[in-house]
């Protein structure tokens, strides 16, 4: 692919993203969810793909964000938009802090142990939120309503979520291009070696999880407002849906790449919506089959498979010197 082709493809995608909610207003919420999926896949990939730590508990940060934002909006009594802004900021910061605190214990676990350990996080959080009256217990929370006098609620959330997805993408991409990004990859490839070379692996791992949690937390706050209802188990800490999807989308697209999770999220979300529309009643079966097909035929994801076929597109080549 030449540079020009690449940029026109990206430009086209950006343009489509900007006009889509105007062209397809009835799908605006679904499109907003698409950007949330992109955030899911990108933030999961920070640990799962770049650092090699398969987390099944990242949904925790999404849920914390959803609740944290809603609680602040409820209790501060600010104007809707100011309350939302403060709530989102708080959601991100709180999620990051929780990631750092959890990281001290959890990130000492390696491989399968980390995966299993994190699996418990989302489930436990769902149970706690479901029994805690301060956040509405089992009946969940309803964030403040978007001012009825104003039109454009769908568009408002669409562009906020789009901005979050863009920010996540570009900030993560910039981070991966630094020494920090290489340190993540080094930990993925051989953590013992990284330690033996003197890398501050504990700090790097905690920071990576905190960055991932920051965007997930903001995404959670936005999603709570978008959906208008925060159920502890089906929305906030929905490990069986969102929690699994984020893993699948990153793997489908190609983990450990920047574009992989984006491509995976788009393909997955569209496929899923089509299943819902045309295979109603069988959508979960179809989704299950799709997952099996992904793992069997594309274990390295779309970009991973492409890289095997065309390594030179990814800069892998022998350079002979004169």
């Amino acid at each position: 692919m030449t540079k020009a082709q690449k940029y026109s493809l990206i430009g086209g995608g950006l343009f489509l993203s900007l006009v889509a909610p105007f062209l397809l207003p009835q799908l605006a919420t679904q499109l907003t969810m698409l950007w949330l999926m992109v955030v899911f896949a990108l933030t999961w990939d920070t640990l799962g793909g770049q650092m090699g730590y398969n987390s099944f508990g990242n949904i925790l940060f999404f849920g914390i964000g959803a609740y944290a934002c809603a609680v602040l909006q409820r209790d501060l009594g600010l104007d809707y938009f100011i309350g939302l802004a403060v709530g989102l900021a708080f959601a991100g910061v709180l999620s990051s802090l929780v990631a750092i605190i959890l990281g001290f214990g959890m990130l000492g676990l390696r491989g399968h142990y980390f995966a299993i350990g994190t699996l418990g996080l989302g489930i436990a959080a769902g149970e706690i939120a479901g029994g805690w009256d301060y956040v509405g217990a089992g009946s969940g929370m309803v964030p403040p309503l978007y001012p009825t006098a104003l039109a454009g609620r769908e568009l408002f959330f669409y562009f906020l979520m789009f901005a979050l997805a863009l920010a996540t993408f570009f900030i993560l991409r910039a981070l991966y291009a630094t020494k920090f990004g290489l340190a993540l990859n080094a930990i993925r490839d051989d953590e013992d070696k990284a330690e033996a070379m003197g890398l501050q692996t504990t700090q790097v791992k905690s920071f990576a999880w905190a960055v991932s949690a920051l965007f997930l937390g903001i995404g959670g706050g936005l999603a709570g407002n978008l959906l208008g209802f925060i159920d502890p188990r089906d929305v906030a800490f929905a490990g069986a849906t969102f929690g699994v999807w984020m893993v699948l989308m990153a793997i489908l697209g190609g983990k450990g790449t920047v574009w992989g999770p984006v491509i995976g999220a788009v393909v997955f979300h569209i496929t899923q919506e089509l299943f819902w529309t045309y295979l109603l009643g069988w959508q979960r079966v179809a989704l299950g089959l799709l997952i099996v097909a992904i793992v069997v035929f594309f274990p390295n994801g779309i970009l991973g498979t492409l890289r095997e076929q065309r390594p030179e597109w990814f800069g892998e080549k022998v350079e002979e010197r004169a």
């Binding site: 990859n185 490839d189 070696k193 070379m197």
Partner: peptide, 14 residues
């Protein structure tokens, strides 16, 4: 022990 998925330059940089 080297970082197998990274190229040689990246191995050196880190």
């Amino acid at each position: 022990r080297i970082y197998a998925e990274m190229n040689c330059v990246e191995n050196m940089r880190i």
